[in-house]
Design a protein around this nucleic acid. Sequence first.
DNA 1: TCTAATT
Length: 373
Amino acid sequence: MTKHYEVKMQVIAAMETQLSNGPTCNNTAHGSTTINNCSSPVDSGNTEDSKTNLIVNYLPQNMTQEELKSLFGSIGEIESCKLVRDKITGQSLGYGFVNYVDTKDAEKAINTLNGLRLQTKTIKVSYARPSSASIRDANLYVSGLPKTMTQKELEQIFSQYGRIITSRILVDQVTGVSRGVGFIRFDKRIEAEEAIKGLNGQKPPGATEPITVKFANNPSQKTSQAVLSQLYHSPNRRYPAPLAQQAQRFRLDNLLNIAYGVKSRFPPMTIDGMTSLAGINIPGHAGTGWCIFVYNLAPDADESILWQMFGPFGAVTNVKVIRDFNTNKCKGFGFVTMTNYDEAAMAIASLNGYRLGDRVLQVSFKTNKTHKA
DNA sequence: TCTAATT
C-alpha cells in the first residue's frame, strides 16, 4: 500500500465521519482541543451581541477572502466578509469575519460549517464578540504543566478567573504526548491579568512542580518582524534612500517569496498563463482554476456537501449545485472549481465512484461537451 | 519550551 493511498483513505475516512455525523468538534485534532468550540458558539453569552457577525478561525493558510466568501455564501446572503492578513507580508493570519444579512443564516453557518475540515485544518465558526480593546491581549502562555494534565483540567484551573474563549495543550506531533505547555485565551484582558497573579508560580492540585503563567507572544508579529529584520540587514540598506523604490520593491518581493512563499506581483509563468496565452484548451481548465463535474447528487444536495467533499483535497474556489428552476431541487449534478491541478486530480481520483448515501458519484474534469441526461 | 482569536 503506497503512502499516497493511505493518505487518500484517511481523507475519505474523515469525510465519511463528517458526512454521516455532520461537522465535528475539534476534540481530536492533534490535542488542540477547544471545549468552547463544541459547547458555546450558539450561546454567545450576551444578548446584546450581533447575531449576524461571525468569526472564523483555523482557516487554511492558502485560503483567500474570495474562497471564504464563497464557502459562507453557500449558506445565505453575506453583508460583508474579511480575511485578516498580516499588514506587511499580506499573509493570512488564519482567521476572518463573515457578517450575514440575516441572523438565521449566521446561526445556520455555525451549525453547518463549524468543525468543517479544510485541508489540514478544522475550522471554527462562532459569533464574533464586539470589537473592543478590553478583549485584546487576553491570551496566556502556560508552561510547566504536568504531562498528565488534560485540557479539561487546565480549563478548570483557569475558569475561576473568567470566561475562557479557547484553551489548548501542545502535544508532541509523533507521540501525541503533552509537551507540558499550553494556551488559555480569556474573554477579557483583566481576567488574564488576574489569572497570572493567582496562578503563576503555583502548583496545580497534585502537581510536584509550579506552573508558569504569562502573556503569550503575539504570533502575527513574528512574520512582520522577520521580514523587517531581513530588510534591515540586506545589502540594499547601504545605498542612499532615493535608490529607486523599484529595486527595493523587487527586493521585498524576493524576501517575501523566500521567507514565506508570498505570491509576487510578477508571478512566474504558470500553466494558467501559458494556456491562456497559447489559446489551447485543457479539459476542465477554466482559466480561474480546474472545473470538476460531479454527477449523481441527490435532489436535496446543497453546496455545503460539495465543500465538505472537495475541501479536504486542497484549494476550492467555487462550488455550485445545479437546481431545477421550479422545484429548486438539485438536478443531479454540480460543479467544483479547484485552484491547483494536482489537488483537483487527487480529488477526482479519490471521489469518482464514491458512495454518497445510496448513490455512486461520477467525478471528472468538466468537458466542453454539454452534459445532457 | 509559543498556536495563527477581534476587522
